[in-house]
Amino acid sequence: MTDTGDQVKKPLHPAAASSQAFQVADIRPTERLFDDPEGRDRLEKVLSRYPEKRAALLPMLGYAQERNGWVSDESMAEIAGALDLTPAYVRSVTTFYTMYNRHPVGRHLIQVCTCISCHLDEADEVFERFLSETGTRAGEISEDGRYTVIEAECLGACGFATAVQVNDRYFENVTPEKVPAILDELD
């Protein structure tokens, strides 16, 4: 696995500003995204990469989720303001993509790929096992706030079925038996 922590040490390079992991365990909630220097810096660096402001939308939605764990209506409105877009437009784009959480999720968002290649493996069983081990139903947050388990469409790891994504990490060749160990590994 890649240690994405490296990026924090030196100032963020503008070329890397639009590709920061936005589904992470360590969220740093903030009500206002662009009231602190970090948010303003990210916005400025992202904007510097495109000829049009609008192109910063996906990176900034990602930033909202990176900070808060999900994308709230307030964040959408704030981003709309920063990019000269209407909040409605931002909502239209946000709801088009599956990776922007429209509600808070558990600290670990566990996405089990159940698409064709994983389906041919044991994806359905792996998914059920995650649900039973975490004591949740699909999409809900476990009582301790640690987990949310959902089904995902193809994660692009078909040769390593069953593929499971937990936040920004991939777990591959997952079998139902391996599920408890994976959960143990997550803090």
Binding site: T2, T4, Q7, A15, S19, Q23, D168
Partner: peptide
């Protein structure tokens, strides 16, 4: 344009670009 789910892989590419 890297698919969002590819965090670990896009991170490697991103570091390489930098």
């Amino acid at each position: 344009y890297v698919r969002g789910e590819f965090f670990p892989f896009s991170a490697i590419l991103r570091d390489a670009v930098v």
